[in-house]
C-alpha cells in the first residue's frame, strides 16, 4: 500500500482548497493565504480593467464620461482598496523572492512586518494623493 513511497491518503476536494484556511495557523500561513486571495482579486480587477480600457475604442465622449464617473468618491475609495491589495501582494511577493534566495529566512516574520509598515506609509500617501487631486 505504501511501498511506493507515496502518501496514499485519498485527496478530497476540501483538502485542495484548505490553503484558504489559516485559522490557528502561523503568520506565514496567513501571508500565503492572503497572497493568493489578493492575487485572485487582482486577476478579477485586470479583467475588468481590460473591459474599461476598451471604452477607448468608443471614442472621446464615451471615455471622458467614464472618467468623470471614476473621479467620484465611491471610485476613489475603490482605488484606495486596489492600492492596498496591490501593495500587499507586491510587498509579500518581494518577501518571497528574498526568502527564495535564502536571505533572512530566520527573520521572515520581521521582514513581513517591516514590508507591511512600509506599505502602510505608501498607502497613506497614495490615499492623500487620490483624494486631494
Amino acid at each position: 500500500m505504501t511501498g511506493n513511497g507515496q502518501h496514499n491518503t485519498a485527496l478530497r476536494w476540501g483538502d485542495s482548497v484548505r490553503w484558504f484556511d489559516a485559522r490557528r495557523r502561523g503568520l506565514g500561513m496567513w501571508a500565503f493565504a492572503l497572497n493568493r486571495i489578493t492575487g485572485v482579486l487582482l486577476m478579477i480587477y485586470l479583467l475588468v480593467h481590460f473591459v474599461n480600457i476598451s471604452v477607448l475604442y468608443l471614442g472621446e465622449t464615451a471615455w471622458n464620461q467614464l472618467m468623470d464617473l471614476f473621479r467620484m468618491p465611491p471610485f476613489l475609495i475603490f482605488d484606495v482598496a486596489l492600492v492596498l491589495v496591490l501593495l500587499y501582494h507586491g510587498l509579500n511577493g518581494i518577501r518571497l523572492v528574498i526568502l527564495a534566495l535564502d536571505i533572512g529566512v530566520a527573520q521572515q516574520k520581521r521582514i513581513f512586518w517591516g514590508l507591511m509598515a512600509f506599505g502602510t506609509v505608501v498607502a497613506v500617501f497614495t490615499a492623500f494623493g487620490l483624494f486631494r487631486g
Binding site: R25, G26, G28, L99, D102, V105, A106
Partner: peptide, 28 residues
C-alpha cells in the same frame, strides 16, 4: 508555497522551511 507551517510546528527546531529555501536558492 512558503507558508512556514512546517517550521512553525517543528518540535526540535529542524527548520525544514529554511532548508527548502536553501535548496531553492541552490536550484535557482
Amino acid at each position: 508555497h512558503t507558508a512556514f507551517e512546517c517550521g512553525e510546528v517543528c518540535p526540535s527546531n529542524g527548520d525544514p522551511a529554511g532548508a527548502i529555501m536553501a535548496l531553492r536558492r541552490r536550484l535557482i
